[in-house]
Amino acid sequence: MNTQTVAQLRGAGKQRGAIQALAEVDLTIAAGEVYALLGPNGAGKTTAISLLLGLLRPDAGEARLFGLPPQDLAARRRIGVMLQSAGLPDTLTVAELLAQVRSYYAQPRSLADVAALAGIEPLLGARYAQLSGGQQRRVQFALAICGRPELLFLDEPTVGMDTESREQFWRTIRELVAGGCAVVLTTHYLEEAEALAQRIGVLMLGRLVAEGSLDAIRARVGQRQIRCVSSLSAEQVRAWPLVQSVQREGERLHIVTPQPEPVLRELLAADAQLRDLEVQRAGLAEALQTITREAA
């Protein structure tokens, strides 16, 4: 294994009850990169993370953290974790919770640094139960980063955060990544993956059906979207060659095509009044839809 690899699944398979939750998954996280694991509910994202964290053991293949089994304390001392649900003790204060998790690490961040990074300075004296849902998420994030991790696991980190907290959160992640921290992220918010991730893996029914850079994933979808304000009817445009689908949203037409240039020529020729023309490559959402449809 090369030294740049911080986490790895090799041929990993895992049965959960009657369901094959994960099958023959190969996945490698390099030092310093942000890797987003995407896929519909039940695709195996949480199982994959649980294998990497050592919460579950694979039935087939293996999981490695820094070249060691994830159960090894020496490996886990180099990671930070934020899970989807973690009901921390209600009656302890934020400062006490931080002290507890900081005590697990050899050289933790100072309390002041963690509080500043996570934006929780005013909350340190408060008991956990008194916090709002968004504030609790920020405390959970603070616990994840307090040990100066080289690899950070974030399972649906921004669920329950408002837009402003989310953007603040993204800025902090970028800061940590600039400092050399790698991140494994699962999220339902595609804009989150687009904002943060360098590489994306798409899980579907327990299999890794696509993996690559953000651009490579987007390019998996050959389509382009054309949007414009036009008086042409959807039926009329749908009859043209190379047009995959047409939808009307108010006065705007929304056309999907694998090859936009011939369609554009026809459009401009057919409607002299046409305006507000936009051509876009399909976004991550469309790419995921296509990939998961192909895989199903």
């Binding site: 050592g54 886990r76 930070g80 974790v81 899970l83 973690a86 009901g87 616990l143």
Partner: peptide, 19 residues
Amino acid sequence: ATERDKGLLALRRALPMPP
């Protein structure tokens, strides 16, 4: 029982909590 339910036990096992 409560800590198992709320996912706290899982978090502590994932964190480098000494066993």
